[in-house]
Amino acid sequence: MIKQRRDVLKSGSSLGVLGLLAAAGVIKPGLALAAWNESAFKVGSLEKTLAALGAGRPATSAAISIEAPEIAENGAEVRIGVSSTLPKVESISILIEKNPDALAAAFKLPEGTEANVQIRCKMSQTSNVYALIKSDGKFLVAMKEVKVTLGGCGG
């Protein structure tokens, strides 16, 4: 009896270790989807988002270009493209200053993936759009203003 109980305890504790490893990211779940970075997506203002991403006050770079319309008639669908000639781009984030939460999307680029992404975003109103790039361990940023005629918050 006692032996059985020990076995159960043992298997229980080994499961616990597995769970811990999974939580620590040592064992990746099948899909390898990174956990959603709620602290950066739900933090609100541009400065707070930059801080949550660990970017601080990034320097402006002319090597980042933002492709977005000067005037977007419909704020519900604004196509924003970010590309860069910077070396070793590890991540690209798109931030919309005047949205309730500034961070719209964040991309992680493995080696071999080009620094060139396009996505459609919602914009609540005319705002500056920032493209934040982590290149060779350093954060750099570029900005473009997009005027919105009709906000994209369903209002």
Binding site: A32, L33, A34, F41, D101, A104, K108, C121, M123
Partner: peptide, 9 residues
Amino acid sequence: LEAQFGTAV
């Protein structure tokens, strides 16, 4: 590619 989206997409 790995991406995370906010509600602004």
